[in-house]
């Protein structure tokens, strides 16, 4: 059987990488003494699969992990168990048994919602920048891939942008960014908007199909609580 866990990554721990988070989970799962299912072969590893990588430095309240188990466990118990076994800032928000035949997180998620702090840019200037980006036919970004610069158009992945109003000395930006053909990072969005990137938090990962959309695992109540603590 598989269980799906939704967790948050907030505060200082945001400076760790996706791989670091995977290792934290491996250790925490062993400490929790869950009946993990292991891969076969010379180098058995627990069968874990994480969703879309969260860029180092970004926060999130919508990270997912699927864990394969060799025996049944009660997912309701997991939330409390893990929070003490994981580093500060990594908190379990929800867990549930995954029905058989579900696709992998990587395959299913179609877009992510981000809340991005844009310091030193007032709400009016931000509204202008948003209009400019949404009105553009193409948005080319250059990034490094396997040591070589690659340029592509990220406009198709910018699904929605809106201003969240003033925030400190700057303003807040809400963005929905598609994951296909590739996931666009908040830093790339900041680059094409010509703004400085402050804190960026992934608040949701969405699966959209046949005109409706849902989250891999929703946690409306827990969400709010975590945000209160983080701010």
């Amino acid at each position: 059987m598989k269980i799906r866990i939704r967790f948050a990554k907030l505060g200082r721990v945001r400076w760790t990488s996706h791989r670091d988070v995977a290792r934290m989970w491996e250790r925490a799962l062993r400490r929790a003494r869950l009946p993990l299912a292991y891969t076969e072969g010379f180098s058995p590893r627990p069968k874990l699969s994480f969703g879309l990588a969260l860029p180092t430095g970004c926060e999130s309240s919508a990270e997912y992990l699927d864990v394969a188990l060799s025996e049944m466990v009660e997912p309701a118990d997991l939330t409390a168990t893990f929070s003490s076994l994981l580093p500060d800032g990594v908190d379990v928000l929800a867990a549930q048994v995954l029905p058989a035949g579900m696709g992998s997180l990587q395959e299913e998620v179609t877009s992510c919602r981000w809340e991005i702090d844009v310091p030193q840019l007032g709400p009016d200037a931000l509204t202008e920048a948003i209009a400019r980006v949404l009105g553009a036919e193409t948005l080319s970004v250059t990034r490094e891939r396997k040591g070589r610069p690659v340029t592509d158009d990220m406009r198709p992945s910018v699904l929605a942008l809106s201003s969240a109003g003033p925030l400190g000395t700057g303003s807040g930006l809400v963005a929905e960014l598609g994951t296909r053909p590739r996931g666009v990072r908040p830093s790339e969005l900041a680059q094409v908007m010509g703004v400085e990137l402050g804190r960026a938090r992934r608040t949701n990962q969405w699966i959209e199909r046949d005109g409706s959309r849902w989250e891999p695992l929703a946690t409306p109540a827990a969400d709010a609580a975590v945000w209160e603590r983080a701010s």
């Binding site: 200082r12 400076w15 760790t16 990488s17 670091d20 430095g57 500060d88 800032g89 990137l197």
Partner: peptide, 17 residues
Amino acid sequence: LLAHVTKPARYIGGELG
């Protein structure tokens, strides 16, 4: 400073123990 350096988690502590 951390957004501009390699392996920023070198500087954040937070180890178990």
